[in-house]
Amino acid sequence: MALSKKTKEAFLGPLNINNPVLVQILGICSALAVTVQLKPALVMGISVTIIVALSNVVISLMRKSIPMRIRIIVQLVVVAALVTIVSEILKAFAYDVAMQLSVYIGLIITNCILMGRLEAFAMTNNPLDSLMDGLGNGFGYAWILVVVAFVRELLGSGKLLGYQIIPDSWYVANGGFYENCGMMLMPAMALILVGCIIWAHRSINDKETK
């Protein structure tokens, strides 16, 4: 089954040209908060993708029956329900991850990407396109998170996914010269990193469109 051009664009757009974090500047708060380490960033990225995709589909299926006056509330209720279910499932089947992400999972409800896509896309498009759009935005958000978390964990703790990458013997405490850059653990630096990615992103994209 060949996907229509529109569907393909719905998926590919947010990965690059219409990236939710870099171009639409949405979802910045969690991009700063959970990216101190790579593992929570991955889990967050996957969770957001699943929730955005699912809620896009659900709202898209319901879109013709939702009363216009309460549509935002309905969207919120659906999203809240989905997030709660995901959170409960995590607590039942992946307890230690759930504990690490405890606050942030609940905050997905307030993630602007979610409400943005529901309002801008799912309310006016069919379920398949909405699914693709949800997945696209989710992955677009996720890869930014992964990149930022990669840099932050590597330079801020010398580790990746909990494994020590920078050799222990390099550290000052062990007789070496190196120190982890404590600034990387701060949200301020994460914002600067996102800024750098936007910088690179715009340079590359502008060159192509010229």
């Binding site: 120190e179 850059c181 404590g182 600034m183 990387m184 701060m186 301020a188």
Partner: peptide, 10 residues
């Protein structure tokens, strides 16, 4: 400031 926040022990 960068030095202060990045490498506080130094």
């Amino acid at each position: 400031a960068f030095l202060f926040f990045a490498y506080p022990t130094h």
